[in-house]
Simulated scan of single mutants.
Amino acid sequence: MKKTFTAASLALVLLAAPLSPTFAAMPASSDTAAAAFNVDKASFVKQVTSSNQFEIESSKLAAEKARDADVKEFARQMIADHTKAGEGLKTAAKLDDAAPALSPKHAAMIETLKGASEQDFQPLYIEMQTVAHMEAVTLFATYAKGGDDAAVKAFAAETLPKLEMHKAHVMKLVAAH
């Protein structure tokens, strides 16, 4: 009985107490929040071209080496969508036709995939895709909100929903495998 009274008393005190500003303020939605950090056009383009090329190259390996049909299908979709995204970036950023260069990080990841055993390849690919799409969604959302080039900013905003779909799809693969 005493515990019930104490809990009820505590509930009344909490309800009667004015809310502190810390609790009263609700965070802004991500649609209206300012970008977490600013990324300039050159940095964005460099990161995106490497990441995009990683997506394509790793997915070509997965289309051949993955064990399960759903992972192979995901890989084929990544090749198609990221090839299209690469063309969109090239147009928006007015890039030449030079082959995109992989960053040392992405090049090492490709080499790791190439050297992975048959048993280890698929889980490693899924893990790398998960991380890559989390990073891509953050980068594109940031540039779409605070980018310094209108055409590239529009490209980022237009591409973001597709990347969010990829992220959701890869999370389903994580759950399934």
Rank of each mutant, 00 (worst) to 15 (best):
D96H: 04
I110E: 04
G88T: 13
P100V: 03
M78E: 11
I126A: 03
G86Q: 14
L102T: 04
K90H: 11
S103Y: 09
E87V: 11
D97Y: 05
D120E: 14
P123S: 12
K114C: 04
E118Q: 10
G88Y: 15
D68L: 08
G115I: 00
A108V: 01
K72W: 01
F121N: 10
T83I: 08
A92P: 07
A99I: 03
I110H: 01
V71L: 11
A116N: 08
K65G: 10
A75L: 01
F121S: 06
S103D: 08
D70I: 00
S103A: 06
K105A: 11
K72M: 07
K84M: 02
A66Y: 07
R76E: 15
Q122N: 03
Q129T: 00
P123N: 14
H106W: 04
A93R: 08
L89A: 04
A80T: 13
G115A: 03
D70W: 00
M78N: 03
E87F: 01
I126W: 03
A93V: 08
K105R: 08
L95S: 13
I126M: 11
A98L: 09
A69S: 13
A116D: 12
D70G: 00
M78L: 12
T91C: 04
A108E: 08
T112M: 15
A85W: 11
P100Q: 02
G88D: 13
V71C: 09
K65R: 14
M78G: 09
M109P: 09
G88S: 14
F74W: 14
Q77W: 00
A93L: 05
E73N: 12
A99C: 01
P123R: 04
L113A: 11
A101I: 05
P123G: 08
K114N: 15
R67T: 13
T91Q: 10
A98K: 15
A116S: 12
R76P: 02
D120C: 04
A116P: 12
I79F: 01
K72F: 05
S117E: 15
A98V: 11
K90Q: 15
F121L: 06
A98S: 15
A116F: 05
M109T: 13
H82F: 02
T91M: 00
T112D: 15
A85S: 15
G86L: 08
F121T: 09
E73D: 14
D120N: 12
L102K: 11
E127K: 10
T91A: 12
H106Y: 05
K72I: 07
I79Y: 02
A69G: 05
D70S: 00
D68I: 00
K65F: 02
K114V: 03
D97I: 07
A66R: 09
S103T: 12
L89Q: 07
E127W: 03
S117G: 14
K94L: 02
T83V: 14
M109K: 09
A75T: 02
P100D: 06
P100F: 07
E73H: 05
D120V: 07
Q122I: 12
D96E: 01
L95K: 08
K114F: 02
I110G: 03
M109S: 15
K94T: 07
I126E: 03
S117F: 10
A80C: 10
D96A: 02
